[in-house]
Amino acid sequence: MSAATLTTPLEQETRGLWLGLLGVAIFALTLPMTRLATGAAADPQLSPAFVTFGRAALAGLLSIVYLAVVGGPRPQGRQWAALLFTAAGNVLGFPLLLALGLRHVEAVHAAVITGLLPLATAAAAALAFRQRPAAAFWGCAALGSALVVVYALSHSSSSSGGGAGLRAHWADALLVLAVLAASASYVVGARLTPALGAERVICWVLVVSLPLTLPAAGWTWPTQPVRAAAWGGFVYVALFSMWLGFFAWYRALALGGPVRVSQVQLLQPFLSMLFAVPLLGERLDATTLGFGVAVMATVFIGKRLPVQTGKPA
């Protein structure tokens, strides 16, 4: 009798929650590790372009090996277009916009802005699958967005030395665009999961990106020396953020169920903030923590509101 046969539903759910926490911890480190890889504008290290293309190229080469070993179904017909769309958001859009933004704002700041990602993904799914969330859901989405805007205006102004009026840093707009790119591509990628399998989807997304990411990584290869810590950050986002983190996350969803496991994702912004303090020497102030709690409260409430499902668009 196999070990899987001996596992009770409660044990499977518990294992799923622990794997979900592992996946969230891996993704939470993406912000500080990306900042570590790119450096600040005043002390640049690896270019945002190289971090984006290089991490995807390395993960794509590993994906070829994985797909060759595990086999399984290959994409067919319109699935290739869906893979390309997902790659545009997850492989290019989100990492590049995130890396560019993190050159100019701290990771604890970015954690608040990107904390809206779960709610943005839920909104994108509602539109794509013609779902009808409760009016309160859209209220939570609007409130969460307003909190992010107020935080970006107030915190960017105070961190830049004050001055008259409130003003946002243009990097905040890049972070918002990163959230939109990721949420849209997550929804399209999710449509491929039943046919291809969750782990294979991310691998195929990376493989179809290789004709662009591999030569672009070589073209943007750094010509100036950078610190070993920057290379360490790059290796992390390539192996864990871009690849292994998805394995843990998708397996967690399969074992513990998406409803329960997805709630663990609420911890991600706070973990990003906590990791940024020792790794980057950043300061976690009361304003950032307060806005982070408020944004996550809107996400928590919004994800628990009822949704009526219709036919996919």
Rank of each mutant, 00 (worst) to 15 (best):
A173S: 10
V207N: 03
A120Y: 10
P48E: 03
T14S: 15
T8N: 12
A217L: 07
I113K: 01
F234Y: 13
T114K: 04
W204T: 08
V188G: 05
L116H: 07
K303T: 08
G292D: 08
Q268G: 02
P73C: 03
A198Q: 01
A164P: 04
V70N: 04
P44R: 03
L97Q: 04
S157K: 03
T34P: 03
L127P: 01
H109L: 07
L46F: 11
L19H: 02
T30L: 10
A217V: 13
G144R: 06
V295I: 06
F137Y: 12
S156G: 13
A25D: 01
P75Y: 09
R167C: 02
L10E: 15
L177M: 14
W170L: 05
T5V: 09
P95E: 02
V150Y: 14
S158I: 09
A164S: 13
W219N: 01
L174Y: 06
F247G: 10
V105M: 08
M33F: 06
F234C: 06
V149A: 15
M296K: 04
R74A: 13
A152K: 00
A99Q: 03
V105T: 05
A252H: 07
A37L: 07
T30D: 14
A88W: 00
L102P: 00
P194M: 12
S159H: 13
V149S: 10
F53W: 12
A123L: 14
S158Q: 14
L177K: 09
A286Q: 12
L305V: 06
A4I: 13
V69P: 00
Q263L: 14
S160L: 11
V208S: 12
R227G: 13
Y236F: 14
L266S: 07
F129W: 14
A136I: 05
V65Y: 10
Q263A: 14
A111L: 05
T8I: 06
P312L: 07
L117D: 00
T86S: 15
L6N: 10
L97D: 01
F247P: 05
Y66Q: 07
R200L: 03
F53A: 15
Y151T: 00
L61H: 07
S159C: 00
I113N: 00
E11A: 15
V237E: 08
R167S: 15
L175A: 10
L98A: 12
A126V: 03
G233N: 12
A146R: 10
S63Y: 00
F275P: 01
A136G: 04
L127D: 02
L266W: 11
L166E: 04
T14K: 15
G54T: 04
D285C: 08
A198H: 00
V295T: 07
G144M: 11
L84I: 14
A122P: 06
S262N: 15
A198Y: 00
T5A: 15
L284V: 06
L305R: 05
A59D: 11
P194E: 12
T86R: 09
L305I: 04
F53M: 14
S241L: 10
A49M: 12
P44Y: 05
T298P: 08
G290H: 11
R15P: 00
A126M: 08
I64D: 00
W18C: 10
